[in-house]
Design a protein around this nucleic acid. Structure first.
Lengths: 351, 351
DNA sequence: TCAATGTAGT
DNA sequence: ACTACATTGA
């Protein structure tokens, strides 16, 4: 039996808006940790992976893992019947052939209840390799959306190059070519990601933690010192650091990093829990662009898909692009309650 | 000869937007009391009745009753040529085969004049029986619109049940079933429906008087109506008034009414006149749902029509649904200058 | 949140 | 061909 309650139906609505064009049917895999969805897009070119962590729910109970086969169009319709700030409770019984959704107005004077048929879906649960990416770029999700939308008017595909200089999106079209370069923000403390007020913990989790740190450091440091810094300086800074850093960092705040280095990084979970307690919120929009680069990458992707992915912009202020040569691009949106990740294989040659 | 002047062309525009999909041709029956339109919808399933009272006009003159046969599409086109806040004067001569419309900007620096051909229409002037309804439900028109729109995504028809509990809208569809329950608002004492204009409905509004608390709540509601009143103050005021008011309270001008209190109820016209003077305004959106119930009713209706009716939401903040078993539903929108009423027969069995 | 454009239905 | 509804963009 599954019973999960969200304080804001809008999260679910946004998730569905994000993926419903890509995928028509999918299994929501519910287990004690939360709810996962993983599916290839209809043309089997892209893969989308959604995670809603149990901590993101006001209430969550899942006695044993259940896959809920959902037609996303139906679910979208049903979710449209929820107002954004309704409390939303979803329930499914053990041999669920129906998903029950209850929307309750905060004022409690309106209660809407929907039952949606479920279906059996063969799940493609593909294992996603845990790649080490050569380039990690974090930027405002709205900026990413704007760029791919703009370029999609010109051509079919975009070449994304990440270098020390920054990240460049270039597209060639019949009537015009376009190129957008985002410089690695010198001053941009990547805004401090979530609030890392607590850094007490121990685990260093993968990349994310690193980021967190960087951000923190950056944020603080820069403000303190370098707020005024100009890009150039930053660039220099970067270069200097490279020698020592290449494993994990590159951005401007390496100094600070060192200081903090003694501390371990906060665990991801810890952070999230905290957030929740405080009031779940996504990280504030970062300023500028944060690039971590091990190796220069240049890959070409279909703009159609990227435009599609960028519909998730309303879920998170920031987006992270992770790339390595000859490996699918990962477009990652983190929001308070989980994440949505898109994988897209690069185009080869000039196809 | 008819000559009628509206301060705001928008009223007429809204009325036509509301009904033009339902009816293509209709007679505007003009007489000394105002203008009435009554017509079956094109498929003869629903009936729409519009009344514009003469007091709603800045000027009104109608020497003797005239029916003006109008093609509503034509009139809609002509009305689109008026700006919302234009003064609008319509004229028709005795043997009118043309309707003359003059739009004058408030600034008087623009005058537009249109002549629209009239036609002869056999009027179906159906007498509408003056039913006593077992259930009367008043709610925000926007909420009603939202509910029927939502449910229309799922199924063809909706079952509306009114009980002590509240009002439930339920629809079954292929991929999902839905049910929306609006509880009778605590603060809106069921007895009272706001404007029982002529109190022809059984005045069962006694309860209000009994409990002061409820009244206060109510008071709030009312306050909203009275733009000038402050909530708290108003509450008190209201209570005081109630004794005398329950007979005729209804819209915004309760205070003034008070003054009038010596009289039992002011005549409807009088009230309206007053409103006008004050500046004709529709009643503010009520909070919550007000239900008056003599007997439980459960009826099924075509959502398509209800969605259509709900286009009148821009004419009035509130809508009132009146139902009795085996009798057509009445959907009533009252606005400052008159009303628009829709009648729709229930579906029988599971058709 | 509102407006404009495109698509579907009558 | 016209109108209405839905989706996307500003």
């Amino acid at each position: 039996m599954l019973e999960a309650q969200l304080n804001e139906a809008s999260i679910l609505k946004k998730v569905l808006d994000s993926i419903k064009e890509l995928v028509t049917d999918a299994n929501f895999e519910c287990n004690d940790e939360g709810i996962n969805l993983q599916a290839m897009d209809n043309s089997h070119v892209a893969l989308v992976s959604v995670k809603l962590e149990r901590v993101g729910f006001a209430n969550y109970r899942c006695d044993r893992p259940i896959p809920l086969g959902v037609n996303l169009n139906s679910l979208t319709k049903v979710l449209k019947c929820a107002k954004d700030d309704d409390m939303c409770t979803i329930k499914a019984s053990e041999e669920a052939d129906v998903l029950n959704l209850v929307y309750e107005a905060k004022s409690s004077d309106r209660i809407a209840e929907y039952d949606m048929k479920l279906m059996d879906i063969d799940s493609d649960q593909l294992g996603i390799p845990d790649t080490e990416y050569d380039a990690q770029v974090t930027m405002a999700s709205s900026e990413f959306a704007r760029i791919v939308r703009d370029l999609s008017q010109l051509g079919e595909s975009v070449r994304i190059e990440v270098s020390k200089e920054g990240i460049r999106f270039a597209s060639d079209g019949e009537s015009a070519n376009g190129s957008v370069l985002l410089k690695h923000s010198a001053d941009a403390p990547p805004g401090k990601d979530e609030e890392d007020e607590e850094e007490k913990d121990s685990e260093d989790e993968e990349e994310e933690d690193e980021d967190g740190e960087k951000k923190e450091k950056k944020a603080k440091v820069k403000k303190e010192k370098d707020a005024e810094d100009v890009d150039m300086e930053n660039g220099d800074g970067d270069e200097e650091e490279k020698g020592s850093d290449d494993e994990d960092e590159e951005d401007s705040s390496s100094k600070k990093r060192k200081k903090k280095a003694t501390k371990s990084k906060p665990s991801k979970k810890a952070k999230k829990d905290k957030k929740k307690k405080e009031k779940i919120k996504e990280e504030p929009e970062m300023q500028g662009v944060n690039i971590q680069l091990n190796q220069l990458v240049s890959l070409t992707f279909s703009l159609k898909y990227l435009v599609n992915f960028s519909k998730s912009s309303n879920l998170a202020k920031n987006v992270r692009l992770l790339m390595s040569s000859d490996v699918p691009l990962l477009v990652n949106y983190e929001f308070g309650q989980g994440h949505i990740r898109y994988y897209l294989a690069p185009k080869i040659g000039d196809e």
